[in-house]
Simulated scan of single mutants.
Amino acid sequence: MTDEEIAAMTPQERQELILRLAPRPAGLPSRRTLERMRKWRAVLMLVCAAALIPWTVYLAETLPKHYVARNWVATWVGFDILLLAMLILTGVAGWKRKQLVFPAAFASGVLLVCDAWFDIMTSQRGTDLTQALLSAALVELPLAFILIAGPLRLLHYIAIRHGMIPPNSPLWRAPIRLPARHLPNHQPHHP
């Protein structure tokens, strides 16, 4: 096929061509197993979210306003070691152009948001709080935005490039599609 013929194809036709040329992933579970896993994971997340609502209300009502924490140094140093490991993993995966950069960058961004939140919420009023606010506003939150938005933009580009979504469609509307021809027990439709 020429570039002109490919350019003239609809996004649906391009996706079908990509799927015809792509090898079937090895070790892919059956369609039934994939669907069962998807449903159970979705149910698990909704049950956890429902359970978290009364738990959060309970904590808001029962936690003391002041608390002396055990292992304070180990908690913060351990958290920073985890953040450091995730940032290194993100940097190495990005440098080597590995797909692991997507979840690593996203997780690093979330950890930076958590770091900013806990720094601000646990700081004493005055210089300590000012330092936490400046660190959050100038370093942690901008870097978190880059680490979360960058991979999302790349995923969006990849979804468009592979014909999974139309060019003007937002990523949050992109479905997760497993082409039937790549799944076991698929019977092709013949006209």
Rank of each mutant, 00 (worst) to 15 (best):
T2H: 01
T2S: 15
E4S: 12
E5I: 09
I6D: 06
A8K: 15
T10P: 00
Q12K: 07
E16R: 08
E16D: 14
L17W: 06
L19H: 01
A22V: 13
L28G: 05
P29C: 14
P29T: 06
R32M: 02
T33D: 15
T33L: 13
W40N: 08
V43E: 08
L46P: 05
L52H: 04
I53S: 08
P54T: 12
V57E: 05
E61K: 11
P64S: 05
H66K: 01
H66Y: 07
A69T: 01
N71L: 03
A74L: 02
T75H: 00
V77P: 00
G78I: 00
D80C: 13
D80I: 00
I81L: 09
L82Q: 01
L82H: 03
L82S: 04
L84K: 01
A85D: 13
I88Q: 05
V92C: 11
V92Q: 09
V92R: 13
A93S: 15
G94A: 11
W95Y: 15
K96V: 10
F102S: 09
F102A: 08
F106K: 06
S108P: 14
S108R: 04
L112Y: 03
C114A: 15
C114R: 00
C114Y: 09
D115I: 03
A116C: 11
W117N: 08
W117Y: 14
F118N: 02
D119E: 15
D119C: 10
D119A: 15
D119Y: 09
I120P: 09
I120Q: 02
M121V: 07
S123P: 04
Q124V: 11
G126C: 03
T127C: 00
T130E: 04
Q131I: 15
Q131G: 06
Q131N: 12
A132V: 01
L134M: 12
A137G: 14
V139Q: 08
E140I: 03
P142K: 05
P142A: 07
L143F: 10
A144R: 06
F145Y: 13
L147V: 07
A149T: 05
G150T: 06
R153A: 13
L154S: 12
L155N: 08
A159C: 05
I160H: 00
P167L: 02
N168F: 09
R173G: 11
P175N: 08
I176G: 07
P179W: 06
A180P: 03
L183C: 10
L183Q: 14
H186L: 11
Q187G: 05
P191L: 14
P191M: 12
P191V: 05
